[in-house]
């Protein structure tokens, strides 16, 4: 790609930002479908086994709800930090962006750690990824719960790593608006990160509240 991009004109440069954003949106489109399978599988389970879901909510108690609500705030805050970072780089303030992106990476990391805490609690209660057995009160909840949330968690981890990559590139002088070094890299990471946030908005409501 390097051979092709190093002599782009300003016009082509804009086109290249547009290309990357459009590609990211298309990628998000296919991710939407992918997540919808897991969400659909959970919805069918919730529809046919409402009692098992109630049992899990009981077992987790108020503390569980508060923990996951706090976690939701973390992810929403990281999304906010992301968009503020993008605003800084659009103004040409690279240092400002790096500060916001550290916040994004940090919040994402804490989110994953708290998810680990939550998983541990659930495992203690006997909610497992493999089928719990027909006589368990949660029968079937585990697989329908862990699959979407863990898949989402994997996306958060990938996002944190990507965020660190963006920070590293920014510290090495990328995104200064010179030809071939526009802020597209930050913007498409932002799209990804917000999408992961949107997925969580849906999962949070569907799994923990409904």
């Amino acid at each position: 790609m390097a051979e092709l991009t190093h002599h782009l004109s300003a016009e082509q440069e804009t086109a290249s930002i547009e290309n990357q954003k459009f590609a990211m949106w298309l990628y998000i489109a296919s991710e939407t479908i992918l997540f919808s399978i897991f969400i659909g599988a959970y919805a069918v389970f919730r529809h046919s086994q409402p009692e098992a879901v109630k049992e899990v909510h009981h077992a987790l108690g108020l503390f569980g709800t508060l923990l996951v609500t706090f976690n939701s705030f973390l992810l929403l805050a990281s999304s906010w930090a992301m968009v503020m970072g993008l605003r800084e780089i659009k103004r040409g303030n690279r240092q400002g962006m790096i500060r916001w992106l550290w916040a994004v990476a940090g919040l994402g990391t804490v989110f994953v750690l708290l998810q680990y805490v939550e998983y541990s609690r659930l495992a203690e209660e006997g909610v497992t990824l493999y089928f719990e057995g027909a006589d368990s009160a949660f029968a079937g909840f585990g697989m329908h719960f862990y699959t979407p949330t863990a898949f989402h968690g994997a996306h958060v981890i990938a996002g944190v790593l990507w965020c660190l990559l963006v920070i590293w590139k920014a510290r090495n002088g990328a995104y200064d608006g010179a030809p071939g070094r526009n802020h597209a890299g930050v913007e498409i990471f932002g799209l990804y990160w917000h999408f992961v946030d949107v997925v969580w908005v849906v999962l949070f409501t569907l799994i923990y509240l409904v």
Partner: peptide
């Protein structure tokens, strides 16, 4: 294609992780 990717993920889990997404005997 992502529909297939999702279904395959569930299939792999059924095969290696002991889930029963597609096992009518077990929920």
């Amino acid at each position: 294609t992502p529909f297939l990717a999702g279904a395959l993920t569930l299939l792999i889990l059924d095969r290696v992780a002991g889930t029963t997404f597609f096992d009518a005997n077990n929920g």
